[in-house]
Each structure stands twice: as structure tokens, then as C-alpha cells.
Amino acid sequence: MSHYLSRIMIPASAAACESDVMIAGNAYRDHRLMWKLFPDAPDAKRDFLFRAEQGANGHLLYYLLSERPPQAWHPAVRVESKPYQPRLESGEWVHFSLRANPVVAKPKEKGQRSQRHDVLMAAKTEAKAKGLSPEAMQTAMTGAALDWLTRRAAAWGMKIDEDEVQVDAYFQHVLHSKGRRMRFSSIDYQGMARVADGDKLARALLGQPAAEPHSSLGHALGFGCGLLLVKRLP
């Protein structure tokens, strides 16, 4: 199945026309604006991943991976798309970036289902319980975030250089929709990795990682998380 990788630029004036979207919070705004790029099937199941970036002059900038070509819904919306079929060879080095919602399942009381927790907040809670210093607490949180990534890298066909990974831009999102309040966190990863399995990496880049333990690209996929991007290194 063919995919498309697109760069979407939405002027603030065009986004402001969608008043119901603008008041819902940034992550929900982004979610709604991405759906507007696919007007032909409003009831279809989501078949895209995206990431919001900081655009120039107040514009909204998005990178979008989709199974259908996106369509501009406003004359000022700029859509640059190209067919996307990633092919990488084992042994190649790439620069990767990923915005993810890393969570960990923590058991509740006996007989109850496990509950998902923010990886960094879970590490912070454990560090506080141990009486660690603020510096040691931050190290533990960063380590937990890095561990979440490295445990999944093999399933994505990558061997990550842990010394070259940056873990930053931690952010807690609050969404308001239809009277409900939702929370999730995101964190940005970037660094260098060696391609260990080109086929597995191609699947992960298309948002369809191999069905293996710890292979998920994370949660909150409809709200700007889970889009893995790579660039070959010379």
C-alpha cells in the first residue's frame, strides 16, 4: 500500500477561522486540523500520523504520514506531498526523531487490570519515595524515558547510539472535548542509530511496526505522537 509524506503549512489566519477548533487546546486543534485534510471520508478510521512543529511568522507547521493524499481545505493552506516508500539497508546510519507518549503499565490491586502511567512521572514518584536529590531525580526520569525508547528500537529495526540521544521537550497536554477532560504527555527524542533490519525500520516508518513485544510507537497517535522520521547520514 502506498503512503504519502507531507509538509503542511497553515497560516494562523486560516486556523483562526476554525473557532471551535482553536478553543479546544493545541493538541485537539492539531487533531481536528489534520482531519480536515481528508474531506472525502469524514467517517473513515484514522490512517495517518503527524507531528506539529514551530512554523515561521506564527504559522502552524506539520509533518504528516498518510495512506491518502491530503487536500488543502483553505486557499492559504499549503500542502507539499510526495509518495513515501522508505527503503534502508542494514548497516546504514541515520538520524532519527520521534515525538512519543511513553507510558508504563503499573499493576493495581490484586485482580484488577494494570493502569497506564506516564513513564517520567512514574520514575519521579519512585525517585521521591527513595529520597533522591532533584539532580538524581531528573537523571532517573531521563533514564526511564531513554529506556522506553531503547527497549523498542530493536523491534523498529534500529540500533540506537545511546550516547547520542537527546531526550527533551517534555510536555503535559490537557484536552477538553465534549465535556471530557483528557491528559497525556509527550517527549521528543532525536539521535543517531544504525539500521539493523531495513524491513522492520520501513514498517515502523510507515506507522506499522512489527508485532513484537515492546514494538509500539506509543500512545496518543491521533494527537501528534508516534511519527518516526529518519534521515540518512553520509
Rank of each mutant, 00 (worst) to 15 (best):
V195L: 06
A136K: 08
H31S: 11
D147R: 15
E67N: 08
I8N: 00
P42I: 02
I187W: 06
L33H: 02
E89I: 04
L149V: 02
M22V: 15
D40L: 09
Y170T: 04
W156C: 09
S186T: 11
A52G: 04
G222A: 11
K231L: 10
G198N: 09
E212A: 14
V230S: 01
A105M: 13
A193E: 04
A27D: 10
K45V: 15
P11S: 06
Y63I: 03
H31R: 11
Q115E: 15
G218H: 00
D47I: 10
I23Y: 05
D199A: 14
P86S: 05
L233Q: 09
L98Q: 08
V174T: 15
Q115P: 03
Y84R: 09
S66K: 03
A122F: 12
L149E: 05
D163K: 05
L65F: 02
R32K: 12
D197Q: 03
S81P: 02
R151F: 04
L217F: 03
R78Q: 11
I23Q: 15
A72D: 03
G224P: 11
R7A: 01
A136C: 01
M34N: 09
G226V: 01
F223I: 02
S97N: 05
Q112S: 14
A136V: 01
P83Y: 09
G224Y: 03
E126G: 01
V174R: 12
Y189A: 02
A196V: 04
L175H: 02
T125E: 14
Y84N: 08
F223N: 11
E18F: 05
E126V: 11
A100Q: 00
K128S: 07
D118I: 12
D20G: 13
K231D: 06
H59I: 00
Q172I: 10
M182W: 08
G157Y: 07
P107Y: 13
K128F: 14
A16T: 10
L229P: 00
P39M: 06
F223H: 13
R29V: 03
P39H: 07
M1H: 10
E126D: 08
F184Q: 09
A136E: 13
H59K: 02
D168A: 07
V174I: 14
Q112C: 12
Y84C: 01
A153R: 02
A44W: 08
R29A: 03
L120D: 03
L98V: 01
R78F: 00
R51W: 02
R152E: 05
W35F: 12
I8A: 04
S66H: 01
A27H: 04
E53T: 05
H95K: 09
A145P: 10
M192W: 08
E162V: 06
L175T: 11
P86W: 10
V195I: 15
S97A: 12
M22H: 07
S66W: 05
D199Q: 14
V167C: 11
L228N: 05
V174M: 09
R194M: 15
Q190N: 07
L49I: 09
V165Y: 05
M192H: 05
V103P: 00
S186L: 04
A140G: 07
E109A: 13
D20A: 08
L221W: 11
E126R: 14
Y170M: 08
